[in-house]
């Protein structure tokens, strides 16, 4: 049986900042509907990797290919800037760790969700509003807050709004950088629940960067463990977490279990 072509294919990706290698020779594939967790402590190169994958930082070396609708696997850095920008606001989503970086803080919650729709040509106010309402409900935001600006929202609400804003164009691939970072434990749990539900329901493919193994365990099908810019171990989530091979992974897992 022929294996279907991957959604994302990364070959020999390297990102250097001067003498420092933030990512060294990383290769992997991501298939449709799959959730990949990238774990490691801060400074391990996870966020740099995510920026390279999501067309926001041109890698020093290597190729990132994405299965563009109608075009098949395409080197994203060979795309023109407008094509990349279009991809980023239609078929992809990027959820930033700090919602302030991913939201327009001076635009209402409804406007934040509606922006992507309007960017691709939606011009019916009522329809945009209904769609925004749908998504706000999906991320369990109070519809009474729809016309309020996110700067008055709590951190958890902002993060849920950011997720709705990204998912409204039904992207196939979502990049998330520490989506639960900076939130209280109880808020984290609720957000994780929500994310898990959405990923399953929408059959999303996602790459999630986190230092929190509990987040990885809950959301990811597969894990990639990073240390000093290198991938030291990969495998199915349960396998990696229950039977870690690399000493660094063992250390990570044991430290989390002690908590």
């Amino acid at each position: 049986m022929e294996t279907p072509s991957p959604l994302l294919r990364v070959r020999n990706l390297t990102q250097a900042f001067g003498p420092l290698l933030a990512c060294a020779d990383i290769s992997f594939e991501l298939h449709s509907g799959e959730v990949l967790g990238v774990v490691g402590e801060s400074g391990s190169g996870k966020t740099t990797l995510l920026n390279c994958l999501s067309a926001r930082l041109t890698p020093t070396n290597g190729i990132v290919e994405y299965d563009l609708r109608g075009r098949g696997l395409t080197d994203i850095y060979a795309l023109s800037e407008p094509e990349r920008r279009l991809l980023l606001r239609t078929d992809w989503g990027v959820v930033m760790q700090n919602p302030r970086d991913g939201l327009r803080m001076n635009v209402s919650a409804g406007g934040n969700v509606g922006e992507r729709l309007m960017a691709v040509g939606a011009r019916h106010y009522g329809a945009i509003r209904r769609e925004a309402e749908d998504w706000l409900a999906k991320v369990e935001l109070d519809l009474g807050r729809m016309d309020d600006k996110p700067k008055h929202f709590s951190g958890g609400m902002q993060q849920r709004l950011q997720i709705a804003r990204n998912l409204v164009t039904k992207p196939r691939l979502v990049f998330m950088d520490e989506p639960t970072g900076g939130l209280d434990v109880s808020v984290q749990a609720r957000l994780l629940d929500l994310l898990r539900g959405l990923v399953r329901e929408l059959r999303l493919s996602a790459i999630i960067v986190t230092h929190d193994l509990a987040v990885a365990r809950l959301l990811a099908d597969r894990l990639m463990v990073m240390k000093d810019g290198k991938v030291v171990e990969t495998g199915l989530t349960d396998q990696v977490l229950d039977d870690p091979h690399h000493p660094y992974t063992q250390l990570l897992v044991s430290s989390v279990l002690q908590v």
């Binding site: 407008p82 920008r85 635009v107 406007g111 922006e115 992507r116 309007m118 960017a119 011009r123 106010y125």
Partner: peptide, 11 residues
Amino acid sequence: EYGLMQVSLYE
């Protein structure tokens, strides 16, 4: 890319 202009009208 004029989505943002439309957002201001939406607001």
